[in-house]
Design a protein around this nucleic acid. Structure first.
Ligand SMILES: [Zn+2]
Ligand SMILES: [Zn+2]
Ligand SMILES: [Zn+2]
Ligand SMILES: [Zn+2]
Lengths: 178, 178
DNA sequence: GATGAAACGTTATATAATCACACGGAAGAC
DNA sequence: GTCTTCCGTGTGATTATATAACGTTTCATC
């Protein structure tokens, strides 16, 4: 999931999960940062160096990073190296939808659809730990029905699927040939 | 959510979320333990005193308890009081579907539908911290579609909704009358 | 009763997250 | 401009959550 150059696939686009397919990764980072800058200017938010760096670190990966991994990289770049530095930046980025927390992993990942209003859902590969973001509509399923039936007011949802990504599934079948 | 006696509501049943409605709580605990015992006998699993106690502790609440809260109660009951004691019991109970982990809270709750095969979904009240379990069918939604489109194989899902339960919603409207 | 696997109790450690305080710089009031 | 206030940052310390490692006990099986 590091820098690659091949935008010849039809799996990308505004509402398509990114992460498993090859794609131009430098563009990923650049666009992510640009989108964040635009967003912050529009809303008069302060996109400070630390916040920008944390987002950049996360955009470099299509996997979730723990707060302390992020902190290590911040240290290398000369930023503060105590936990609150990372956690405060993450709090800001999550609050404004630029980063999501993966609860299952206690880790963080850059949003793949910044700007768009969305209820994210994630697919987490248990083998390579890569994470892809998709859309979810939990209010329109069994959960939504249960909420309406009981009078529960949903404000936020966590939807995370754990399994095996196509790349790892291929590897496995090749290692253990029939 | 402590002991109450009123089974006169139509919100209970195999596939109905429990937790917000009044119900006979002693029965909850007894039935939960009985179901676990049955299950363990059937599958030749060892339902040891520690495991039984942890499940009993969780059944007493319809909220999620952190591992260390559980540990405190184990200590009071004369069991081992070091973290691995609680975590090992929880690992067993989770592995066999008798307890679920609420990822959002890093906490654990007794299964409300033991025995039945199910993909649980949870509604978590951010005010009173009570948790209700419902069914989910994540493979049949936007997430399932995304998984099929990309070739991701879903093995397990985390579905947790955060919001306000009906009881707390009532309280709020009463406290701030128009 | 001997044997091996699983469960337990304990010590220590790793990982994740927050608290509390001091400092400095940007934004608004005057 | 200067003052004041708020917000973000850097740091040390602490709390909360989770696992590693090791020896002992318990149980099922032979
Ligand atoms: Zn997103
Ligand atoms: Zn993978
Ligand atoms: Zn359940
Ligand atoms: Zn509530």
């Amino acid at each position: 999931m590091t820098s690659e150059s091949s935008s010849s696939n039809d799996l990308e686009g505004a509402t398509t999960p990114v992460g498993f397919a090859h794609h131009d990764h430098d563009t990923c980072v650049a666009e992510g940062l640009a989108a964040a800058e635009t967003r912050c200017e529009e809303d008069s938010l302060r996109f400070t160096p630390v916040r920008r760096k944390v987002l950049e670190i996360l955009l470099q990966e299509h996997r979730a990073l723990g707060a302390y991994s992020i902190l290590d990289r911040l240290r290398e770049e000369g930023f503060g190296s105590q936990p609150p530095v990372a956690y405060r930046a993450l709090e800001f980025l999550v609050a404004h939808g630029l980063v999501h927390k993966i609860e299952r992993l206690n880790a963080f990942i850059a949003c793949a659809h910044p700007g768009e209003k969305h209820a994210p859902a994630f697919m987490i590969c248990r083998m390579c730990e890569c994470v892809a973001e998709a859309q979810s509509a939990p209010a329109r399923g069994a959960l939504g029905a249960a909420a309406r039936a009981t009078g529960f007011r949903i404000e936020r949802t966590v939807v995370e699927a754990e399994g095996v990504c196509p790349t790892c599934a291929d590897k496995v079948t090749k290692e253990v040939p029939a």
